[in-house]
Write a protein that binds this DNA or RNA. Structure first.
Lengths: 179, 179
DNA sequence: GTGTATGCAAATTCTTTGCATGGAA
DNA sequence: TTCCATGCAAAGAATTTGCATACAC
């Protein structure tokens, strides 16, 4: 039995199964490993890097190789099914990945605690239109990252700076209090 | 001891010549190597990666080491004097650098020819305000990258796709015309 | 059955670290 | 004269490649 379309089309956009269809259409084989990785990327909701993904995937298939993770991510990226993020290089130089299912959004990264928030707004859509109109540029993907301090860390940071002052400049000099 | 970026970017906006002063204030020594690198970053107008910068610097000082380039860039980045870019990883996984003297802007990267354009608009300022107000987030830096095809490459790309079709599907099958 | 995808080992690319020496303030 | 900065060598992190085997279609 098949089910009729109940929700507006947009609601259905690229559900889990549509990714697989998209891949099948291109002649990409749905191997056991790829199924595992696709499921993890799709359901985790996190911004995972290759290593994290590999560690999670190994729990489902001990033999799954790190190289397969890299190859799969590359394939998905080039196929436009995942976005590659850097998250301001907070955690290092690795890349992070997320599905392209959601609406475009900015990533707000706290440079003190590493927390990542997603920010949905009109700014990206507006920029897209301007860039397309002004430059005649055909946009395939965008990436917006914002770095700074989250509300909580602003307070903690202020304390740290204050404390650092106290220990660094004990008597108008540059030395240490002890050592 | 030198001090890292603490205040929002706007507080740090400075004229070209103030970079050295800013460094001196923080107790950063203006060595021969750093002068060379600062000058290159400042005047090149390009988005240079560490290796390019190193090659250019070597022409002015054969002994200057690649490690010094990395250390200097890191120092400038942490000091908020340069921005680190990825340019959609078009050229690889290296990072690119530019001075923070200019107004914030997006980088538009053509994924076919690699050309990078800078796009100045209101969108970043508007997003900043929204993020600060809605999330109570203290923004230190932003990064906006747009990938796609420039007006010229759109045409060339269309041709390429057309040609690829011709060779791939000669007679409704998947084989080759010869071989 | 056929040809793509995987696993393994090794290589590559980009960047950082340890330590003795050099040099800016 | 005092440390910070440099150069050198070596290590480290992230990612890719070559090739024989496995397995999805």
């Amino acid at each position: 039995m098949w089910h009729a379309l109940v929700l507006p089309l947009s609601e259905y956009r690229m559900a889990q199964t549509d990714i697989r269809d998209s891949l099948r259409e291109r002649g990409v084989r749905l191997t056991r490993q790829r199924k595992i990785l696709l499921d993890l990327i799709d359901t985790s909701g996190e911004h995972l890097d290759a290593e994290q993904l590999y560690q999670m995937a190994k729990k489902r298939d001990v033999k799954l190789n790190r190289v397969t993770v890299y190859r799969t991510l590359k394939m998905l990226k080039q196929g436009g099914l995942v976005d590659e993020l850097d998250l301001m290089h907070y955690g290092g130089d690795q890349h992070y990945y997320e599905t392209r299912l959601k609406q475009e959004h900015a990533h707000i990264i706290c440079l003190r605690c590493g927390k990542v928030e997603e920010f949905f707004g009109e700014h990206i859509q507006k920029m897209r239109k301007q860039v397309e109109q002004n430059l005649g540029f055909q946009i395939l993907l965008t990436r917006t990252e914002v770095g700074g301090y989250c509300s909580n860390c602003q307070i903690l940071r202020a304390r740290e700076v204050e404390q650092a002052r106290g220990t660094e400049l004990p008597a108008r000099g540059r030395g240490r209090t002890s050592g």
